[in-house]
Design a protein around this nucleic acid. Structure first.
Lengths: 379, 379
DNA sequence: GCACAATAATTTCCTTCGTCAAGTATTGAT
DNA sequence: ATCAATACTTGACGAAGGAAATTATTGTGC
């Protein structure tokens, strides 16, 4: 097992190697502000236990002379992790290695969202995924939308699942026999991006997800923001237009009331005069050049951009990743998101780089797996 | 002098006693997650150097029996600190004790904002304030609006002063002979609130200042938010009304474009038809029941509330303090700030307590002093 | 008044972690 | 072959904090 209740140096050496690729001991020492002796000592147990290994010295560093470095790298196959994103009608699962590379994936439709059914399906899904990795996988990460207490694995409230105070962590641990970590889905995805994606090395960054709802995960000073009252990252309910359409939250003109999927479909039906119009129809028509429908997406993108600008203005992240739950229409949004952002970002906040790209759907499950990796490392 | 390059326990014991009032060693141990032995050891040098002292055991704790605790408290008079807020036309200075209680205050009008003149006036002001405390004061904190690098004491850009890349820290250190800390004014005020005000004990909180501009200081996970690009807390440029009035930032309908002093005065002149109307006139008329002018303040308050809600939705602070640079019309704003906040705050974010109260003008200078206290403690 | 329980604070000893400084290892250059 | 340069390792040491015993100081039950 991983060195337990371990010295801070061991954790920081391992996370640095894990997230910032192969690094020599000297480089680690510089980066972490430790002596190289401390790095040597911290690395030893990690190598002995098979979590790290020395890479064959490849590229020479420095001016030329000197002993070549033997960079440390993680042995990705040392341990495996299952991650499952739980939605109201589907379980999406992946099996990842220590470096969060997906080795296998699978999903299952849910016919109901009651806890028993979900747990039964989850157990089967996990069993399928484990396959030949069974003996080298001990941890399961679960990602659920809504209010989740990651410390206890309690799902306080999940609107899409209609769950309230479900001790999901314990239940899943019992039914799978694995060590379980539960986290909010957006936070899980944010963690994945922080450790293995574009957030690597950034002290602060934000991840925005666009879909039915519009959410946001926030990392500030290197730590995930949780919100004292259980609410954080609710970019969907930042105001955009006081006089805009009513939002389900009771206000008007929230970003989500303009740019959420429902809002877009509703507005598209209005402007097209076709009450049966679907999102896909609207996307197709807008792509084909339908001006009124194009304007609907433009307005939505502008609203999202303004919401993102609010994040940039308030917390000033080093970079922002914008993605979607299968954001198929991303080509329609992107320019307007950028324009809305530029318009509303103040001063140097406008310099904040924006990455707008659709994430594969499995990415959410990978986020769940990442959370379980993090739980192992920072235990 | 204060124990230097000191063990983390010493710093945390001192800050805990400083901000959370008298505490027994056992209470400190519990609160800080240390053994009581460690607290005893950490407290000793602080007592020897005169920064802490034992309070006569006052109230019995626990069920009754047992040795009474002798709580530790800071010796406020051990050391004194000067804090000066620098504005475009005035220096406001205070002299504070270690507990940031104001012992003396003074101010000076500036006839010009060039660096030389400000430094000369500053030196005189500091000299005045030091008075009989001269031998027990070694630190000066300066608060300046704009982009300030706290670490180096460099004022990168201050729009009101028309300063750019002024090494204010060094210059003021030379002219006063004190150890100088420079900080952005809103951040300084936020630090004051975090250490000695309503932010005490909160892991995260926000301070919003209403005035010519609308600013915000943010503490998340116990640390001040700085912004990777030098921008953070720009609540004034959060969007409120896409179709609202043009803002000096280039966008439309920013909170500041609706609720900044200039915006209010402009709008008040419009609705009243009196081009010479001042802010005080508008306040007086609104208080007297002038409906159109009342609506101007109402709308401004609503916009501020919406901006505050954006903060609550995004970072979820434990509490929010709203104040102003001499926010005289605060009675006109308050109900609408609250209403705007409630309207736009999502879910549990609406539970975030809002304190709306005008701060005495000296408070800004006290913030500057607090920053220098913090610099001493966390050196 | 006297044991004694209860709580606070201190002391002593010990572990742990990380640094320092010296040494070993491995390369290219002369 | 020697030397400079760089990477890494080792072992002695010191600082910080913990565990447990000890001392200090109270109230309570008798």
């Amino acid at each position: 097992m991983f060195p337990d209740a371990t010295a801070p140096a061991v954790t920081s050496v391992f996370t640095a190697v894990l997230t910032e690729g192969p690094l020599s001991r000297v480089a680690l020492a510089r980066r972490l502000g430790l002596s190289s002796a401390a790095v040597t000592k911290a690395a030893r147990p990690l190598i002995e236990l098979g979590y790290l290994e020395e890479l064959a010295a490849t590229e020479r560093t420095g001016p030329g002379a000197g002993r070549p470095a033997s960079p440390l790298t993680v042995r990705a196959g040392r341990e495996f992790f299952v991650g499952v994103k739980i939605t109201g009608d589907e379980l999406i699962g992946v099996l990842c290695d220590l470096r969060a590379e997906v080795r296998a994936s699978a999903h299952r439709r849910l016919v109901a969202a009651d806890v028993e059914h979900v747990l039964a399906e989850l157990a089967e899904l996990v069993d399928d995924l484990l396959g030949s990795y069974r003996d080298r996988a001990h941890r399961l990460g679960l990602a659920v939308s809504g209010d989740v207490d990651q410390a206890t694995g309690l799902v306080r409230y999940s609107p899409f699942l209609h769950w309230r105070d479900v001790p999901l962590g314990e239940l899943a641990a019992r039914s799978t026999g694995l060590t379980v970590t539960v986290e909010n889905d957006v936070k899980a995805l944010t963690t994945a991006e922080q450790w293995f994606g574009e957030g690597v090395g950034a002290d602060s960054f934000a991840l925005v997800t666009v879909g039915a709802g519009i959410g946001c995960g926030l990392v500030v000073n290197g730590r995930l923001v949780s919100g004292a009252h259980g609410v954080a990252g609710e970019i969907g309910h930042v105001g955009f237009d006081v006089d805009g359409p009513a939002c389900h939250c009771g206000s008007r003109g929230c970003v989500e009331a303009v740019a959420g999927t429902d809002a877009i479909v509703g507005r598209a039906r209005e402007v097209s005069g076709r009450p049966g119009l679907t999102l896909d129809d609207a996307v197709a028509l807008a792509r084909a050049g339908d001006a009124p429908l194009g304007a609907v997406f433009a307005r939505a993108g502008t609203a999202i951009g303004a919401g993102i600008a609010a994040v940039a203005n308030l917390v000033g992240p080093a970079r922002i990743v914008v993605s979607g739950e299968g954001l198929s229409a991303y080509d329609l949004f992107e320019p307007h998101i950028r324009a809305g952002f530029q318009r509303q970002a103040f001063g140097a906040a406008a310099d904040c780089p924006l990455s707008i790209r659709p994430l594969p759907f499995e990415e959410w499950a990978r986020g769940a797996a990442t959370v379980s990796i993090k739980a192992l490392v920072a235990s």
